[in-house]
Design a protein around this nucleic acid. Structure first.
Lengths: 230, 230
DNA sequence: AGGGCTTAGTGCATTAATTCACAAAGTCCA
DNA sequence: TGGACTTTGTGAATTAATGCACTAAGCCCT
């Protein structure tokens, strides 16, 4: 039961590491060599103690009185997050959003090349978007095998999302990023993260309304998303 | 200091209400009249006690031994989230993602009509996407005033995101949905929510790597996002 | 060499969120 | 009418996350 599974890093800390990484990459690009927990905290908009605690989960890579080395920490965070390699992505659903994501260079630049895009609509299959041709969702299994896909992105309508998830899981995918506004039923061995743009706006509207009702004396929304299903 | 600001609902609960709402809308569409906390919990993938506690923040709207009424609860959640009205949205950044979002009917259908899209690139200004013409980011102030914009969506490059945020804030916007992978510096009176697709994938990759390393005996990612900045 | 300064690392108190578990309140049917 | 059954609402316990505040370490300057 209690396997060692490396170190147990709290989920909340894991979710912050990518943000630190992004900031450190910026620092590296401007030739900054070192940083302190205070500096990173200011840039990330969090508490300095939290930064130190988060980084301490990676190991003791700082130097007291000095700080942390930018490039070394980048390396350690990438190692921890599994970013020493690329993870191939397939997009299911070739609508507006799916095509935009397939072209989106933010994926490739962060080590997540989109190697395929599929749809179930014969009118869309065969179209070319950037360097990819829309495939048939029925070929998902082959695509996953041949292109060594690790992550599936669902950008179908909500009606089609569950069968898209089923197809991905059937093809052996265990990590899914879901943009459809539905709660997917998946085995617990599969990781799902939901990005529901409507939900985000609705959360904003709650805090916006609070501000309006109480004469703007109200605190603002937490920047965290918490699509708290499952 | 201690103003009554309505009821104080925990942030974590607020973030779940939109998901319940989405599920209840589906139930209503299939003519379901009532539901129990157990049923909603199963559909949302959460614990039943959590559902009851979350709903209890809205008031005591259930009936013991029976459950909750679908349409009545929909009404209450919408009231609480500020969804009894529409909130107008402007998109800053008319790239792939910005244009896809401007067309995205998931915004309008949930009460967030996109009433404008702007860019700073003269080559993009004047183009028409769906029913909108790309405006000049310099006109943001006028657009916000004339179109009664409540929420700004940033889909610029990361380099341009901060100045986009500054322009939105200068125009009087207090709610921002940010897709650029940077931490925005904003006054605390402004609500910012970040959707960073790269971050989501990196979180997935962490759990995917865990599974691979420890022979797939590892729990999966939390479905919540926690872009824990600020 | 040593004292002052800076900053990481962390134990501990606090706060927030979750979950349990049970009493209260209602339905339904004989 | 009454008793079995269902399901809410919520105190209380538990777990997770946060943030304080102090110790330990290393740098720098005289």
């Amino acid at each position: 039961m209690t396997q060692l599974q490396r170190r147990k890093i709290p989920d909340a800390a894991i979710a912050r590491l990518p943000i630190y990484l992004q900031i450190l990459n910026n620092l590296a690009a401007t030739n900054v060599l070192r940083f302190s927990s205070d500096e990173l905290a200011a840039l990330a908009g969090v508490n300095a103690a939290k930064v130190r605690k988060d980084l301490s989960y990676l190991g003791s890579y700082g130097t007291r009185g000095v700080g942390y080395e930018v490039t070394y920490l980048i390396h350690q965070i990438k190692r921890e997050l599994g970013l020493m390699r690329e993870w191939n992505v397939v997009v299911v659903g070739a609508g507006n959003l799916g095509c935009a994501l397939a072209k989106f260079d933010g994926f490739l630049s962060r080590g997540f090349p989109v190697v395929g895009i599929v749809d179930n609509d014969p009118k869309k299959i065969g179209r070319t978007t950037s360097s990819l041709t829309v495939g048939d969702v029925g070929d998902l299994k082959n695509i996953v095998r041949d292109e060594k896909v690790n992550i599936g992105v669902i950008t179908t309508s909500s009606a089609a999302a569950q069968s898209a998830a089923d197809a991905l899981i059937d093809a052996g995918i265990t990590s899914i990023l879901n943009f459809a506004p539905v709660v997917l039923a998946t085995p617990s061995s599969v990781s799902v993260r939901n990005v529901d743009l409507g939900v985000e706006l609705q959360i904003l509207s709650y805090y916006e309304q609070m501000r309006i009702e109480s004469g703007s004396k109200v605190q603002s929304a937490p920047q965290l998303n918490s699509v708290g299903a499952r």
